[in-house]
């Protein structure tokens, strides 16, 4: 540190240069360095995602981000509400559908997309692509997320609204939580997302 200063500014023989003062300064520098290191610390972050959609394609982004954030050692909460509940529903999560109607990424006019059975066709096409690409399944991502300590929450109000039972959800899913819990987590988070 002292080597950065021009020689004229440093005079080790100066009797006014107090050793105790120097020690205090060094301690202060160490203290500041460690607090800067703490600020730069990537870990210790928190993310809260609100998952409101239950279609096959919309189930992916929250789960991918949650499992990846957990790999960064972030504390992660995903609050599932309305159709988002179906992602955590053990039975329904296995049959999430892609909507062919009103989906501008589908190479089909809406009139054809609306034909009964088209959603199933679109979902099968997407599922095939996912398999071929080595993309994880929704099941796998839920297991991975829970395994890594992600808190997957199911909104109590919508559980009742949809007529679901707490036992319908994957083991490890948190129930008995509402908007206030979600807000509290969001307020404490570095990253908040609504999907």
């Amino acid at each position: 540190m002292s080597t950065d200063n021009p020689p004229a500014a440093v005079d080790d023989t100066d009797p006014e240069f107090d050793a105790a003062e120097l020690r205090t300064l060094r301690e202060r520098v160490e203290e500041l360095e460690s607090s800067v290191a703490e600020l730069n610390d990537g870990g210790g972050k928190k993310m809260t995602i609100i998952a409101t959609q239950g279609s096959f394609d919309m189930a992916y982004p929250p789960l991918i981000l949650a499992s990846t954030a957990a790999a960064f050692d972030w504390e992660v909460v995903v609050f599932h509400t309305f159709w988002g509940l179906d992602i955590l529903h053990e039975e329904k999560s296995k049959s999430l559908k892609l909507s062919a109607v009103g989906n501008p990424n589908m190479p089909l006019p809406n009139a054809i997309a609306a034909v009964p059975g088209m959603d199933a066709v679109a979902t099968r096409m997407m599922q095939k692509k996912i398999d071929e690409n080595g993309t994880a399944t929704i099941d796998e991502l839920i297991d991975l997320s829970l395994e890594q300590g992600v808190d997957l929450q199911a909104c109590q109000m919508t559980i009742e609204l949809m007529g679901y039972d707490e036992s319908d959800f994957y083991d490890g899913v948190t129930t008995g939580v509402g908007a206030a819990t979600a807000l509290q987590h969001m307020a404490e988070s570095d990253v908040q997302l609504l999907v």
Binding site: I64, S67, T68, A70, A71, G134, T135, A136, L144, Q148
Partner: peptide
């Protein structure tokens, strides 16, 4: 090999 995002990261972390 053959796995896509986010699996390489998650598996590396594990």
């Amino acid at each position: 090999k053959g796995l896509s995002c986010p699996m390489p990261i998650v598996k590396t972390k594990q």
